[in-house]
Amino acid sequence: MYVIFIKNYKEKIARTCILLSAWFALFILVNFILSKNMNYILTINNCLSFSCPADFTVENVFINEANKDGSIETGLPFIKPRTETFKNFISEKGKFGFDYPSIFTIDEQELSGSDILYHVELKSEYSNGFVQVWNLPQPLPEFLEKAKSTSQLNYQYFSSKPIKLNNLDGYVWDYSIIDKNGKQIKSNEVFLQKEGKLYRISYFIPEESWNNYQKKLFYDIVNSLKIY
């Protein structure tokens, strides 16, 4: 048996680095091959089943509250998406409705003596919002321009873009403010107009908690709006 001592420490360090780099490259290669060839099957309540690549992420599955006890199974035990149930709200007096996640509590208020006809408050542990119906006696762009110019909010950034949702024309506001406690709040608002009325859907959450899931949640509420 031969024992070789390497006295050149620089050479020893170089060989160690090369060996570690080779192992790291092998790990990346194996992970790439597995992610491209491994699928898992997602089954929801025995009525819907489909296959997904392992490198895809199914973040949330929304289930109607009537089926909230339904099961979600995956072919891989370590992959299981979070499930959320949703409810449907209908204002019989206001003639509008929308879907919202059941994690929110909801409170409808009918207002008199103001341009706001109906106000529906949405609250969760970490975010809040509302849906409002307004009288709209002037063109929507003028109304929003006046609202923005007279606002006393401390905007950190602000953007306004025209949109068309559910065959309704409107605008989306995307902005961030500093509240009275010095906390930065992310805000998304959609304003839609129909037959002299303004439908306003607003969502507020701490800036650090805003992500693609929160954005999708907001637009799920917006896209579910129905006017009767």
Rank of each mutant, 00 (worst) to 15 (best):
K80T: 09
E92I: 11
L122Q: 09
N39G: 02
A54Q: 04
T57S: 09
V30P: 03
F62T: 05
I33G: 06
F96V: 04
S91Y: 11
I79R: 14
I41G: 01
S102W: 03
D69T: 04
L48R: 09
N46L: 01
L122P: 04
E121Q: 09
N37I: 12
P77M: 00
Y126D: 13
P53S: 13
T74E: 05
K87M: 15
M38H: 01
S127T: 08
N37G: 07
L34P: 00
M38R: 12
E65I: 14
P101Q: 10
K123T: 13
G129E: 06
S127G: 07
F62Q: 05
F130V: 04
S71D: 10
S127F: 08
E108G: 04
P53Q: 12
F130C: 13
T43H: 00
N37P: 00
D99T: 04
L34R: 08
N45L: 01
S91V: 12
L42N: 02
Y118H: 10
N60E: 09
S51F: 01
D107F: 12
L76H: 05
N45A: 13
K93R: 13
F130D: 10
F56M: 10
D69V: 01
K80Q: 09
S112E: 13
Y40W: 08
D107I: 08
V58E: 01
K87G: 15
I103D: 14
F50H: 02
I44Q: 01
E108W: 10
C47I: 13
D69K: 11
I63M: 06
T43Q: 03
Q109C: 01
S112I: 12
N64A: 05
Q132K: 14
F89V: 10
K68R: 14
D99Q: 09
R82V: 11
N46G: 01
E92D: 15
I44G: 07
F98W: 06
N45S: 12
I116L: 12
F62W: 04
E59F: 03
S49N: 05
K123R: 15
L117G: 02
P77D: 08
T57E: 06
L111C: 00
N39P: 04
D99E: 11
A66Y: 08
S71W: 00
D107R: 15
D115V: 04
N88W: 01
E110R: 10
F27N: 15
D107C: 11
F96K: 09
F86M: 10
N64Q: 07
